[in-house]
């Protein structure tokens, strides 16, 4: 995905009118109360505090989004920085025509696809699951108790087909709606619902012994 593609993203889902032109925040608390889109506009105008609030809201979810897609920490860190760099670079042309989260995860998804294609250019994207399923924290201590259950969940997610996994993570981490996910994946809303249904069913089956 190119810089211009990042800047030209113009989905038009569910924006409140006041998010487009928010009142200037008087302090950090006021900045926290602003919608993501307002914060991004304020950052485009030079307000670094607005960016810090925005970043704080989304950084961990985006980080997990890459990890859940099977990236090791080094790769996740590289992709993570790339996404934020593209976002920073596109600040001047940013127009809040879609939810900020939709834009952010669109950047992330495209960067992830670029990464996969660079790694194995002739593979189908769905062929990533086995390699991506390898757990990173497979230490003996991590296998115990809740840590083990969390590890199993992460492995189960990584084992999902890429499109199901992506739909699941876009909803669970990014909070995207069915329509937003459908737009990003280029499919219909019902297709997304179907992918999510299957993803949830597989997770339930994989973890039935610990989460009955």
């Amino acid at each position: 995905m190119t810089e211009s593609a990042a800047a030209d993203f113009t989905a038009t889902a569910g924006l409140a009118d006041d998010a487009a032109m928010p009142p200037p925040p008087a302090d950090d608390a006021a900045a926290d109360a602003l919608a993501d889109e307002g914060l991004m506009l304020r950052y485009a105008g030079g307000d670094m505090a607005a960016f810090e609030t925005l970043y704080r809201r989304h950084k961990d979810a985006l980080w997990r989004y890459f990890l859940r897609h099977g990236c090791d920490e080094a790769t996740a860190g590289e992709l993570f920085q790339d996404v934020w760099a593209r976002l920073i670079g596109a600040r001047a042309t940013y127009r809040p025509q879609a939810r900020f989260a939709t834009w952010l995860y669109t950047l992330a998804q495209h960067r992830l696809i670029d990464h996969w294609r660079a790694q194995r250019p002739h593979d189908d994207l769905d062929a990533h699951e086995p390699a991506l399923a390898a757990p990173e924290q497979a230490t003996p201590a991590a296998r115990a108790g809740q840590a083990e259950q969390a590890g199993r969940l992460r492995r189960a997610i990584a084992a999902l087909p890429a499109e199901q996994r992506s739909a699941f993570l876009l909803q669970a981490e990014g909070g995207l709606t069915l329509e937003e996910i459908a737009r990003q994946q280029g499919v219909g809303r019902e297709t997304v619902k179907s992918r999510l249904r299957y993803a949830l069913a597989k997770l339930r089956q994989e973890l039935a012994d610990v989460w009955p």
Binding site: G46, K59, W63, Q81, A150, A172, E173
Partner: peptide
Amino acid sequence: ASTEQAPAALDAAVLAQARAAV
């Protein structure tokens, strides 16, 4: 199960880049 957080070094790098841009 999702308790991972972005490393502090990444936070610093991204925030520095954002600050330098503006």
